[in-house]
Structure formats: C-alpha cells, structure tokens
Amino acid sequence: MSNLSAVEPPDNPARSNETGHQDHNLLELRGIRAAYERIDVLFGVDLVVPEASVVALLGPNGAGKTTTLRVAAGLHVPSAGDVLIAGRRVNGAKPEELARHGLCMIPEGRGIFPNLTVRENLRMMTYVGRSLAEIEEIAYSRFPRLAERRTQTAGTLSGGEQQMLAMARGMATEPALLILDELSMGLAPIIVAELYEMVAQVARSGVSILVVEQFASTVLGVADYAAIMVHGRIERAGRPDELAADLSKAYLGG
C-alpha cells in the first residue's frame, strides 16, 4: 500500500466494459485532484458511471469519497482534472446548472426539512416546474409509506422514512443520475437493507446511481460496479464479487 503512487491507473472495469463507451457514460471523472484550502484530498481520481447502472464508492472515513461526490455535483471545484456529464465537459458548472442537466445529489445526513410536513417537503420541490400533485404522485408511487405520513412533520418520521423522503424529493426532478451520500448513516442494518431494495428499484427504472456507503456489503448486493477509495485514490475497482475480499482490509486494516 505504501507504493500506491506506483500503481498504474486503476483498472476500472466500468471503463473497459462494453456499455462503458464514451457516449454511454453518464458521468466520468478524469484525473480529479482536489484540495480544501491547502490540504490535498484527492490525488487523481478516475471514475465512470455508465448509463443505467449503480456504482458504489466505498472506503474508510477520510478517504475522499464525499469530496469526490461534491466534485461530481459541482459543489467543489477540483484543482485539476475533468468532469464529464454525458460526454460533455462541465468543469466549473454550478450545482443548479448540473441539476438542470439531470443530476441530483442527496447529501449525507438526510436532505429534509425536519419542521416541515412530508407534503410541505415535497412542495419545496415544485421549483422544478412540476405541480405538487405530480410530485406527490411520483413520490408515493415509489415510496407508498410516505403517503400514509403526508401530514406528519418530517422530523418525527423514523430514520428510514426520512431517508425515503429525501430520495422522494430527489426523484421529483426525474434525474438521470442520482448521487447518494451515506444513505445508511445512523440507521439499523435491517432498515439499510430495505432502503437499498428501493435504490435497486429506482435503478431498474433506468436511473443511474452513484452511491457512497460505509456499509459496503449491503450496497455491494445492489451495485453493478464498485470502487474502493483509500487516501484520495481509487485503490481497487471492479465487479462487486471481485472486491469483497479487499474490503475488510481497507476498513479494518490487518
């Protein structure tokens, strides 16, 4: 692990995959370097999210996963490298512009307003140009449990339901690419499993998903591809079954 710099550009099957042709990559990061003030966080990250697939970005805390997502969503400007969306270079684009191109990011820690009701939370999404009725329709059809809770304050929902609401809000934009950061944060394993079943459903409807997750085993059941990130670099990438063995080492050492 000490000679990381000597490792060749990550052998990312997502890239060499037959569907991974340039035009069919919804998101592509090329040689992304990023820093907070003067501290370097990312040292040349290459990552591809092909159309209609789920890519899991895994790794221990502080590896730079969230920063990678923030760069992809336009929330953090990289110091080097290119961000491509559907083959078009979008370096320096504002988050709201990317949102209009069909990118939706659900940040860590539940993107909901706790003192607003479920319905009001959904109503905040009417800015995308859809009526509340349409948005509610999309949300409740995907997450029927929210329909029962529509007049309840979001803060009183269970953790899993809050996360469903956050995803429902994201779906209101009918995104082509959904970026999920630590969906499982603070949730019991059984709820996490349930949530990822819904993620899989969303993916089946044709939405590409890039997900950062600590609960690696759970997400690997859903993901088409996965990459393990350590110290600001993609250390391994491949099909989930190829990676399972490396995970424990990345997280717990040994």
């Binding site: 996490v192 600590q214 609960f215 085993s217 759970t218 997400v219 690997l220 995970l247 997280y251 717990l252």
Partner: peptide
C-alpha cells in the same frame, strides 16, 4: 455501534470479530 459497545478486546481480536466486521461493512444484502 448505534450507541452500544459491541466489542472490547485487543486489536487482533477486534479485527476478526464478526460483529465488528458486520458493523463496519453491513450484512451482505
């Protein structure tokens, strides 16, 4: 994990403790 101490031990024991591995990596789903 979830506000509870799920394991105590020396580093080697912890690294191989199944409960710890599950807490970090989740259950295969």
């Amino acid at each position: 994990d979830f506000g509870r101490i799920i394991a105590v031990g020396d580093p080697q024991q912890i690294q191989t403790n199944p409960a710890v591995v599950a807490a970090y990596l989740g259950t295969p789903g």
